[in-house]
């Protein structure tokens, strides 16, 4: 009896944590795993969603998207858009964070700049897209200023020209995303002990040496974490590109998200769209695993 009681108690103890976890496991299963598994299943079916009895397609849809030159162009555009965005988010974010952390700037001005610099972060992607469409339209403010300064000789169709469109959407995304870096790095800067800089001053270190040998190494964990997260988020940007260029002109701003959207809702090829979505999922998953390993290592 005592033995039975003991084993019953043991079982209860073993099951209890899972019972506590069960609500969140259920929610994760329903809201995350189920849609993910469904999309993966669709990518192996012919006429997924559109037919009640879809047949098994094997890797046909993956083959089809890998044979499509627009897919590879989209992948390249996604990488360019993401890498440039992350690099400039970090550079601008760092510059502004250093500026806002500096004692040489008047505190009132610093507070005003703090509000101004954070503004892009407050706008939704749709508002940002509309703002930049208006600013960069052929008869917009940017062309007008550049013409008056003599920097350009004629109006540039920033979003409508295949030569400039990808750079223009990347620029708009850089503008929208740097505040995340700025705020995170500013918090990091304020956490660096003053003693380090005082010791460096005694040693006669110059400003750039303090930046390279104290500030950046101290901020490195933040820089890597935020960069990885930004890479994952930027890879999935859709509304900004969709509203500014729709993936055009021609295919010059087609990224994986717009490519997948068009397959699903323009071509109604939900099987191929699912295959493309799975490719995006795998890339994101790889980056996420890298991020988790980095966090664990810390």
């Amino acid at each position: 009896m005592t033995r039975q009681k003991r084993s019953h108690h043991k079982l209860k103890r073993a099951v209890a944590p899972y019972l506590y976890l069960s609500p969140s496991l259920l929610i994760i299963g329903l809201l995350m795993l189920l849609p993910m598994v469904t999309v993966i299943a669709y990518s192996f079916q012919n006429s997924a969603v559109l037919r009640r009895d879809p047949s098994f397609a094997g890797l046909k849809h993956y083959q089809a998207i890998f044979d499509d030159p627009v897919f590879w162009a989209s992948l390249w555009h996604t990488l360019y858009f993401t890498c440039m965005s992350v690099i400039f988010h970090m550079t601008i974010g760092m510059a502004f964070a250093l500026m806002l952390n500096s004692d040489r700037i008047n505190p009132t001005l610093r507070n005003i700049l703090r509000v101004l610099y954070i503004l892009p972060w407050l706008f939704t992607a749709v508002i940002i897209a509309v703002i930049w469409r208006l600013l960069l339209e052929p008869n917009g403010v940017v062309n007008s200023i550049l013409l008056q300064l003599g920097i350009i000789g004629s109006k540039v169709e920033w979003f409508s020209s295949p030569e400039t469109a990808l750079h223009a959407v990347t620029f708009a995304n850089i503008w929208a995303g740097y505040p995340l870096f700025m705020v995170s790095l500013l918090a990091g800067l304020q956490g660096i002990p003053k003693d380090f800089y005082e010791a460096a001053d005694i040693d006669g270190a110059k400003a750039y040496q303090k930046l390279i040998f104290i500030t950046i190494p101290q901020l490195m964990p933040i820089i890597i974490s935020i960069s990885l997260l930004d890479f994952i988020w930027t890879m999935q940007v859709f509304p900004l590109i969709w509203i500014t260029t729709g993936g055009g002109p021609i295919y010059s701003t087609e990224v994986l998200s717009t490519y997948t959207y068009k397959l699903a809702f323009s071509s109604y090829n939900l099987s191929q769209a699912s295959a493309s979505a799975v490719v995006i999922l795998l890339i994101s998953l790889g980056l996420t695993l890298f991020y988790i390993r980095y966090q664990k290592a810390r």
Binding site: E137, K155, E157, S160, S161, A165, T245, I250
Partner: peptide
Amino acid sequence: SPGIATKTEQEKVEEFVNDR
């Protein structure tokens, strides 16, 4: 009117409305 490749129907109407 320039900006053909990214112009939407709404913008077309706006340009007409504004005498452009």
